[in-house]
Design a protein around this nucleic acid. Structure first.
Length: 508
RNA sequence: GCCGCGUUGGUCAAUCGGCUAAGACGCCUCUCUUUCACGGAGGAAUGACGGGUUCGACUCCCGUACGCGGUACCA
């Protein structure tokens, strides 16, 4: 197995929004593939027709793309092992199921879902296994004739695996080491459903074989059903071809207990999905990390560190760095709580590090949503550069940068009330006029002019700083005030001062 | 219930038998900046419990407790 080409797959079912845990699984698959010059495959596991959600597949592909996790093969790009949608491979599974029946490793079962449900209601511990299959309606208890008869009359049936008794199945998990299962504890799982579709158990094994998957990275919730998969490998393709297993720890909710769900996000006010997801049936939209103002670099970086680290203490990694540093041995065994505060910290770091050009277009979307008129890209980039260290989410650029494009409507007067005086008024009036002559219009020169005006009124520059900020910004925040003036330009700066002077005197 | 997996500060976590137990987020204090941040300095806060093994256990083994996952014709 080790000498083969590395081929891994991310295999989501298209049932709704893409959960951050799913993205992490995709990420670890991707990192492992890239690190070993292997292939990263997207396979759509849509065997449950009742849960099919239109648009979900395209959405998943867009999410992966946003994250920078481009598959090498998949339903949207094809590849030598297609089709990559299980619903389109429906006919390949049945033959394997029937092969298992012939080998005696599986059997037909004619029990209806209602009958089984009734049994489960009677005995809460009911399992379809060696202890019960003898009393149920299947090809093990029915005569060959009866079975033929049932089959011919088109009676619905499923094919179940016949779990052997008193066997211990050992698997080697790359993350957990040796794990043992007692076959008596696992039930006769359905392999082929009455509608002719395989269940996950059959489909993964068949497709992993046919697609020559070398390593399976999947969530820890799959560990208990792994013995079924191992048995299927043994029966169908030989354990020599079986991929390596790696069961990833779960991502837990930040408060209380359990794995993180969409509901936790709604309740606690943070996203769980990678991008906005609109349910086509209800029309309801659930917010995603992207629309919440996250950079894909930060999102991916944060997820990589949720359950893995390289031991060096480094926390900020580019995707390429992650590829070179990633190692299965350093994936944790235990689940990790999602911490939205830490997620925001990652985003803040990435906003500060990346050149503003990198997220310019994304930020423009936020401004457009608020109907804030923008100037040319060059000025916008200078603005973003000036305020980026104050922004944690992309949406913060609005709050921090709006005043560069729209003059303040209201002023935070609490700051200036105690400082305002006729002298102050005079100094500002004088300075505003003097500004006319300032050339070139640069922060330093603007400041010198203000100092001169202040001295004439026997005031200190520092006394005027805060009032000036209120004039230009409206509030007590933002980058150095003379840099703001410089960026605003001479005309706009003077206009704002004049406008504010009128407003201030009215209140003073 | 049964089976499996897990358990270092509030959270993410380092440690692979020598610990006075890193670092990060968050929180608090101070500093820088007469704004808000950023930056800088400091602080509070951790090995679930009980037995072994060992000169020495956070690290290895066994129990217990707790948590999570699974137990569908869902994935």
């Amino acid at each position: 197995m080790s000498s083969r080409e590395i081929r891994v797959r991310f295999a989501p079912s298209p049932t709704g929004g893409l959960h951050l845990g799913g993205v992490r699984t995709a990420l670890y698959n991707f990192l492992f593939a890239r690190k070993h010059q292997g292939k990263f495959i997207l396979r759509i596991e849509d065997t449950d027709q009742t849960r099919f959600v239109p648009g979900a597949e395209e959405y998943i592909i867009r999410c992966l793309e946003w994250c920078g996790l481009k598959p090498d093969e998949g339903p949207h790009i094809g590849g030598p092992f297609g089709p990559y949608r299980q619903s389109e491979r429906k006919n390949v599974y049945a033959q394997y199921a029937h092969q298992l029946v012939e080998q005696g490793h599986a059997y037909y079962a004619f029990d209806t879902p209602e009958e089984l449900e009734a049994l489960r209601r009677q005995q809460p511990n009911f399992q379809y296994d060696a202890t019960t299959r003898g009393q149920l309606k299947n090809s093990l208890t029915l005569s060959a004739k009866e079975v033929q008869h049932y089959l011919h009359e088109g009676r619905p049936y499923v094919i179940r695996i016949r779990m052997p008794e008193n066997k211990t199945i050992r698997i080697h998990d790359l993350i957990r080491g040796e794990v043992e299962f007692d076959t008596n504890q696992v039930d006769d799982k359905v392999l082929l459903k009455a509608d002719g579709m395989p269940t996950y158990h059959l489909a993964v094994v068949v497709d992993d074989y046919l697609m020559q998957i070398s390593h399976v990275f999947r969530g820890e919730e799959w560990l208990p059903s792994t013995p079924v998969h191992v048995l299927l490998w043994e029966y169908l393709f030989g354990k020599a071809h079986m991929p390596e297993w790696a069961h990833l720890p779960l991502i837990l909710r930040p408060d209380g207990h359990g794995k993180l769900s969409k509901r936790d996000g709604d309740r606690l006010g943070f996203p769980v999905y990678a991008m906005d997801w609109t349910d086509p049936f209800t029309g309801e939209t659930t917010r995603g990390f992207r629309e919440m103002g996250f950079l894909p670099e930060a999102f991916v970086n944060m997820l990589a560190l949720l359950g893995w680290n390289d031991g060096s203490g480094q926390e900020i990694f580019t995707l390429d760095e992650l590829v070179t540093r990633f190692s299965i041995e350093r994936i944790h065994k235990s689940g990790a709580r999602f911490d939205f505060e830490k997620a925001k910290w990652f985003n803040h770091e990435w906003i500060k590090r990346l050149p503003v050009k990198h997220y310019l277009e994304e930020v423009k979307i936020f401004f457009k949503q608020q109907h804030i008129p923008l100037s040319d890209d060059e000025k916008l980039m200078r603005v973003l550069e000036l305020i980026k260290e104050r922004c944690t989410l992309l949406g913060d650029f609005i709050e921090q940068g709006k005043f560069f494009f729209v003059a303040p409507e209201t002023y935070d007067l609490s700051v200036i009330q105690k400082k305002w005086s006729p002298g102050m008024q005079a100094a500002f009036e004088e300075w505003e006029k003097a500004l006319e002559q300032v050339e070139p219009w640069e922060a330093e020169n603007i400041e010198h002019a203000l100092i001169a005006a202040a001295e004439k009124q026997e005031l200190k520059k520092n006394d005027m700083l805060l009032p000036l900020r209120i004039m230009l910004v409206g509030g007590k925040f933002g980058p150095p005030v003379f840099q703001i003036a410089e960026l605003l330009g001479k005309v706009e700066t003077r206009q704002r001062i004049r406008k504010a002077l009128v407003a201030f005197s009215r209140h003073g």
